[in-house]
Design a protein around this nucleic acid. Sequence first.
RNA 1: GGUGGGUUGGCCGAGAGGCGAGGCAACGGACUGCAAAUCCGUUUACACGGGUUCAAAUCCCGUACCCACCUCCA
Length: 468
Amino acid sequence: MAFHLYDTASRQIRELVPVVPGRVSIYHCGLTVQGPPHIGHIRKEVVFDVLRRWLERSGLEVSIVANVTDIDDKILAKGAEQGRPWFAVAYENERALHAAYEVLGCTPPTYEPRATGVVPEMIEMMQQLIERGHAYPADNGSGDVYFDVRSWPAYGELSHQKVDDMLPAEDAPPEGKRDGRDFALWKGHKDGDPESASWPTPWGRGRPGWHLECSAMAAKYLGPEFDIHGGGLDLRFPHHENELAQSRAAGQAFARFWMHNAMLNLSGAKMSKSVGNTLMVSEVVKRVRPIDLRYYLAASHYRSIVEFSEESLAEAATAFQRVEGFVRRATALTGLGELTDVPADFAAAMDDDLSVPAALAILQGRVSDGNSLLAAGASDELAIVLAEVRSMLDVLGLDPSSPTWDRGGDDAASAQVIDSLVGGLLEQRQQARAAKDFATADRVRDQLAAAGIEIEDTPQGARWSVKG
RNA sequence: GGUGGGUUGGCCGAGAGGCGAGGCAACGGACUGCAAAUCCGUUUACACGGGUUCAAAUCCCGUACCCACCUCCA
């Protein structure tokens, strides 16, 4: 079965047939870097990282472009507030985003352009839109340039709304607009805004409008037609609707699929800076292992709302640790081995609009099989199950054996010291058990547990691990 | 006011006309010196009211509640 994906525009699950055979091009809206990323933002990154991994595993070459919107009202306001350049604010938060990718094992995008880097392309596109009669400079001298919504009959095709039902766009004062729904392609320079936040254009100095940025970047890096345009569901309107209108009005075919991930809610509302119910990635990973957080974020279907709670996060961590425990135990017996093909039913689930929950059910089933085999010690069959389980985990970016999840810091020398100390205690415990001195044996176990070390008694003897 | 999506067992979470996904928790059993881990088993779910059908959690109509978008937003 070939890969099928839900398309928001047509509201159908369709087979993905790439524009260029063998290669998939994806654009998804990155962050407006007005603050560090919260776990709702990073959910989107995990979703697209899983998509990329699955497509690559299916033998396709994948290009992903995710923009960084490094200029907007809030970034300018924060710069002014903090008494430093707006670009210092933007860059600091861009680095925080990269740190979040890193800690959760998300491969960075193929290209990650900044909005301020495509100003010439935006000017060119505006000129083209004005020539074609789809845009106009404001006639009130503001320096704004607007898209003429009435000139584009298809406007509303993505969010399935009629222009007359829409409320006026409030991104600019209505005086300069022909219609209240017209939206800004470009924002004229205002008194009080820093000079560094403006660029010259045929219509005066000004700065990029949000919607046009993405159209310009998508065209520059992926060409006039590409496979998938993604982003959070909250961007469907107006942002994506506007992008689609601009790019098509400029003569481009644009995205074949629109893929929107659902929101992550906290306390019944979308996690967002404006509501103030945010949990920063950098904070959460201090108390939850990053790999457990990734499992939690990846485990739900991407089109389902995730209602965040500490309980469900803890539950996800437990579920993942069962899988991880199998990988650890099996690896100890058979060695790591090579990755292999994923089971056909797992592949079918992933091909069906990235049905990770169904795929996880198959993974869990294999883990059960593997755990049963484990009792008999090493076997070829066990090695096969291990390879399959790790391959499935790899697709989800959750293979605990991957170097991604190595927590730097413990150097080989101290690891050896710990190994030898724990080994000595385990030996003492074994002797006590042999002598049926269970009080001593349990005392040793308690002592190790207090130090954060778990003991597992197996047919091959006791094994220890540091509790996660 | 307009446009979408949702409501599933103690909890999380899939499914989309007939066969009870999976996980977590709980309980029982196996294993264990006792545990832990693991395995096996058990726990008669689909918001409410109508309708269509031989058959509805799944389709249709209505009601209630929740979420998102129509302002900046992943």
